[in-house]
Design a protein around this nucleic acid. Sequence first.
RNA 1: GGACGGUUAGCUCAGUUGGGAGAGCACCGCCCUUACAAGGCGGGGGUCACUGGUUCGAGCCCAGUACCGUCCA
Length: 951
Amino acid sequence: MEKTFNPSAIEQAMYSHWEDKGYFSPTGKGDGYCIAIPPPNVTGSLHMGHAFQQTIMDTLIRYQRMQGKNTLWQVGTDHAGIATQMVVERKIAAEEDKTRHDYGRDAFIDKIWEWKEHSGGTIGKQMRRLGNSIDWSRERFTMDEGMSKAVQEVFVRLYQDDLIYRGKRLVNWDPKLHTAISDLEVENKDKKGHMWHFRYPLADGATTKDGKDYIVVATTRPETMLGDTGVAVNPNDERYQHLIGKHIVLPIVDRTIPIVADDHADMEKGTGCVKITPAHDFNDNEVGKRHQLPMINIFDQDAAVLARAEVYDVNGEPNDAYSNELPAAYAGLDRFEARTKIVAEFEQLGLLDEVKDHELTIPYGDRSGVVIEPLLTDQWYVRVEPLAKPAIEAVEKGDIEFVPKQYENMYFSWMRDIQDWCISRQLWWGHRIPAWYDADGKVYVGRSEEEVREQNGLGADVALTQDDDVLDTWFSSALWTFSTLGWPEKTEDLATFHPTDVLVTGFDIIFFWVARMIMMTMHFNKDENGKAQVPFKKVYVTGLIRDEHGDKMSKSKGNVIDPLDMIDGISLEDLLQKRTGNMMQPKLAEKIAKATRKEFPDGIEAHGTDALRFTLTALASTGRDINWDMKRLEGYRNFTNKLWNASRYVLMNTEEHDCGANGGDMVLSLADRWIIGQFQQTVKTVHQAFASFRFDLASQALYEFTWNQFCDWYLELTKPVLFKGNDAEQRGTRHTLVNILESLLRLMHPIMPYITETIWQRVAPLTGNFSEGDSIMMQSFPQIDQQLVDQQAIDDLEWVKQFIIAVRNIRGEMDIAPSKPLPVLLKQVSADNQRRLDQNQQFISALAKLESIDVLADDEQGPASATSVIGDMSLLIPMAGLIDKDAEIARLNKAIDKLSGDVKRTEGKLANKNFVSKAPAAVIDKERAKLDDAKSQLEKLKLQKQSIEAL
RNA sequence: GGACGGUUAGCUCAGUUGGGAGAGCACCGCCCUUACAAGGCGGGGGUCACUGGUUCGAGCCCAGUACCGUCCA
């Protein structure tokens, strides 16, 4: 074996081997266990969030596979409507200087499929680097044939159940991309802007209380006044109560609109009067609905002012309550140009009351970067309320559990106030809506044009055109757990793997994805008793991975760390190129480059997949955000190396030797019995940790056992046996070495697959329980055997450790070279300790590097010595020439101070009558024992100090 | 404005049902000892954000305050 662990040499070949052997596929034996991956975006590449969640999923899958389950990790990607369309649009623009319209719809879609063939697999290749034990043969895509069929089926059935409808509603409109987008794709940013105060003249000679013939409304969006259909005041606002029901005449458009009473108007804010534009503001839209105010749309799909407005009633039906005229000067003006012009015109008219600076939140399209416009458009909706009811109950009843539990609040609060879901998108790439219109605009929904004609008795002479729009990507994602398993067919896979067991995902998509999956799955999947089936039983919610300063990782901030760069390493030059390569703003690029140089002066070293995975699990505590710490990764890289070298030691001393695999006399040393018990405790902790999704506790237990017990103590304790023991003792220790290591590797495998497999291939044959071609992946996970925990061995070894530590402490504090063997004298050795000493003299002498151990008679004073106390026993190391008097006094003083503090505190506690009368007996006994112990140690050290001082 | 989460060592984080705080990294000293210097041995370091309450006893339970974060309006 190499002297250091070199992950790059083993990982990729090993992964290919596993994949070729088919180890990732369900075995077909045992209970089903399934995790459906949150499908990454097909245009995406691997980021830290993926690495984090996938490490957790793979750890669970590998654990359950080793527990004998029939495991399936179902993988796939989603078609990411907007993102993918944009990628290909940019590509044809750059390469051919064409737009998608030059291609036409069908040819453009072909182009996208072509792109997907060549570039759509990036993230899959990256996911393989993480060691994910995914059954790639079952990879799905939301646009593949089967899933398209499922999407269509769901749409048609929901429509038939009256759970889908079409309507004119306000949506988040992206004026650049010309499509509705979801809330998730809207980025709200705080900006500095203005609040304009406009005077709206009162109609019919009405006046305010202070005699003015106008009221003042405040707005951040002056241009929308062209679409105002009302002014709201608070019903409790005494300033305006007398004006409720009166009208104002809207300047510029000369439109008479009512003053209504609505709680939406905040008396404390501004003037207390709010202009209402139901067609261009979500809040106003609600107010408009309450007061039957018509909606006047003033913008086209570019958010430029229309030549003629569109007037609708509250239900979105065309209406002539108001004239559709708009001032000609505004026609075709962009909304921001219109704003300037409106303000100027108000000023000119003497109607601009004042302008104030104002902080406001502005919605931006996360892909287009332009300001989102609330716009009235024809869209398809899912009526979610009936679907939400059982979905809420499933979580209330515990059929689905969130981990950690507090995320259930988030789920409930959203589900109990749920809005209908806009599922149509004005894009080309996606599932085309299976709806057709006749010449009169009557809509027919069906699985195909033929079906529609047949079911509605429409002859070939009736012209039908299909809806141009496609469905929101989340619509297909909502069917993910069951459509990937073959629905709407009744497949074997559905019976075996659905409901899936765990969903691992981020809290940011609980609404957009998790909730919708629950609703859709429960509506379309029933078990044999007709009971709705949930998509998964547990939802493990992860936090976000942020950079070392707690900032969100983002391209624009230039603080993204690619998980693969931590696995393979990257030079500073390449990292700078990656972070600033495509930057449009040179200033920002410079800033990022500077920060990157400071953070990674030498680039990033290679750490290997196992170290990355171990770090991720070690940080996975309770669903909260994680500030990424490169030092932590480095520490765990060192840990993989430690494991590597410990294994090297084991192999050096066992390969080519008799390790008792075929019988033969074996004697187990105290250390052997001790480590076997310690290992059992570790197995127990790891099982508990996995069961409760505390991957951090699992990692911690593995780290602690491996480094602090196995390496620091056990391996050292095997040396005296292997060098000096007899055949039976050596065989016993070799047997223990080999078997503990082999079991430890299995225990670690779910978290660190590569290194454990590599070492296991060498170690497992020594246990005698190995066949050519075996893989650790397919072995059983260690189970707890409480009988192997030998409490006396544990107590005895703790005593041995204390003895050794006491000597090392004196050595360290007194600057005595580790190579210098020391004589040790003991006083007040009890029978039990005498036994421990007799049985373990070799261990003690070797690990503490002792020249001799002698027991003094009770009345014997002994020479001037440095002293330590272990229980009742005193341990002395003669100072003779080795130890400085003052240094020893200083050392004793330190120990005495510490003990005095303990004694004082404990005495105080025991002197408290309330404590003694009310605390449980066990606690009091413990305190008494503590006090006795501290007192006796203190006494011994004080005497010792006196005798040294007397020298 | 409402809800939830957080505040523990220089940094990143654990701390189970209340019995006087832990890890990794960083720091200090000594060691290239035959698995490992990506290491070994020893060591230093915390008024557990603040205020009050419950309790014999509070990092942990309760109330409030401050600051940070997230979601919703």
